[in-house]
C-alpha cells in the first residue's frame, strides 16, 4: 500500500475514519513505526489540549459575559443603526412645543434635556452602573471626567438614586446620574467639565415638557432635568447645590 494521503492520516488521528479505512491505515502504520509514532503524538496532543482547557467549560461564566450575551443593542447603537433620524424624531416629539427662540437655550441645558429624554424611558438599562455600586460609580465617573464627583441624594424629596452612566459630550465625557421616585418619575443630573471656570446662579430652561435647572460651579457644569412643576424641580436643584457645596 502506498503512503496514505495526509488528510487520511489526520482523520485517523482525529478518529474520523470509518472502520474499514481506519483498518487499512492501521495495517500501513504497522509497517511504518516512525509514522505511527508521529500519529500517536498527534493523538496525544489532542488529549493534552483537552486536559489543559476542558476545565474552562466547568468554570462559572463571568457575569460581565452573561450580560454582554444578553444585552440588547444599546440605545446609542440602535440610534446608529437607524441613523440619527430615530433619535431626532423621538427627541423632536418629546421636545414638541419648543419655539424656535428657545433653541438659544444654552447647550448645557439642551444636551442635558436630550440625554434625559433618551435614557429615562429605558426600562431594563436606564443606567450603566447601578446605585448598589455607588462607590464604584462615583469613582469611575470621576476618573473619566478627570475631577472628583459627588452624587447628591434626594431621599427627602422622594427620589432615590438609580445609578449613572457615561455619555459623550461636546468637549469630552459627561456623567449622568438618574433618580426615581415611587411613582416612577425620573430625574437626571447631568454633569460636565467646563473650562470656563466661573460660577453662575441657577438658570431655568424649558425644553418641551422637560424642565432644566442648570448652573456652573467652578470646573463643573450641572443640569438637573425632570418633567415636573418648576417649583418642585427648583427645590431639588437647591438641595443638589447645597450637597455639592457643603
Amino acid at each position: 500500500m502506498n503512503r496514505p494521503l495526509d488528510a487520511d492520516l489526520h482523520a485517523w488521528a482525529d478518529g474520523r475514519l470509518d472502520a474499514a479505512r481506519a483498518a487499512e491505515i492501521d495495517a500501513w502504520l504497522a509497517g511504518h513505526p516512525e509514522e505511527e509514532a508521529r500519529l500517536l503524538d498527534w493523538k496525544r496532543q489532542k488529549e493534552l489540549l483537552h486536559a489543559a482547557f476542558d476545565p474552562v467549560l466547568e468554570e462559572p461564566v463571568p457575569a460581565r459575559l452573561v450580560d454582554a450575551a444578553r444585552r440588547p443593542p444599546r440605545v446609542w447603537r440602535l440610534a446608529a443603526a437607524f441613523g440619527w433620524l430615530a433619535i431626532g424624531v423621538v427627541v423632536g416629539y418629546l421636545l414638541r412645543g419648543v419655539k424656535p427662540g428657545d433653541a438659544t437655550a444654552p447647550a448645557l441645558a439642551r444636551n442635558a434635556a436630550i440625554a434625559h429624554v433618551v435614557y429615562t424611558p429605558e426600562v431594563r438599562h436606564p443606567v450603566e452602573v447601578g446605585a448598589d455600586q455607588e462607590a464604584h460609580l462615583v469613582q469611575w465617573l470621576s476618573k473619566r471626567l478627570g475631577t472628583p464627583l459627588k452624587t447628591p441624594h434626594f431621599a427627602a424629596q422622594g427620589f432615590d438614586l438609580v445609578g449613572g452612566r457615561l455619555l459623550p459630550g461636546e468637549r469630552g465625557p459627561v456623567a449622568q446620574f438618574m433618580y426615581q421616585d415611587r411613582g416612577g418619575r425620573r430625574l437626571t443630573l447631568y454633569v460636565k467639565t467646563d473650562s470656563d471656570n466661573r460660577d453662575t446662579a441657577f438658570r431655568y430652561a424649558q425644553e418641551g415638557k422637560i424642565g432644566v435647572f442648570y448652573w456652573l460651579d467652578g470646573r463643573l457644569g450641572y443640569a438637573l432635568s425632570g418633567e415636573m412643576p418648576r417649583a418642585e424641580l427648583l427645590a431639588i436643584a437647591e438641595s443638589a447645590y447645597r450637597q455639592l457645596n457643603p
Binding site: F53, V56, L57, E59, V61, L65, R70
Partner: peptide, 17 residues
C-alpha cells in the same frame, strides 16, 4: 437564539487561543 449557551465553549477556545 440565546448566546449564553455558547459561552463555555467560546471561553475554552479563546483561552487556548
Amino acid at each position: 437564539e440565546d448566546l449564553v449557551a455558547h459561552l463555555p465553549r467560546l471561553r475554552r477556545y479563546a483561552r487556548a487561543l
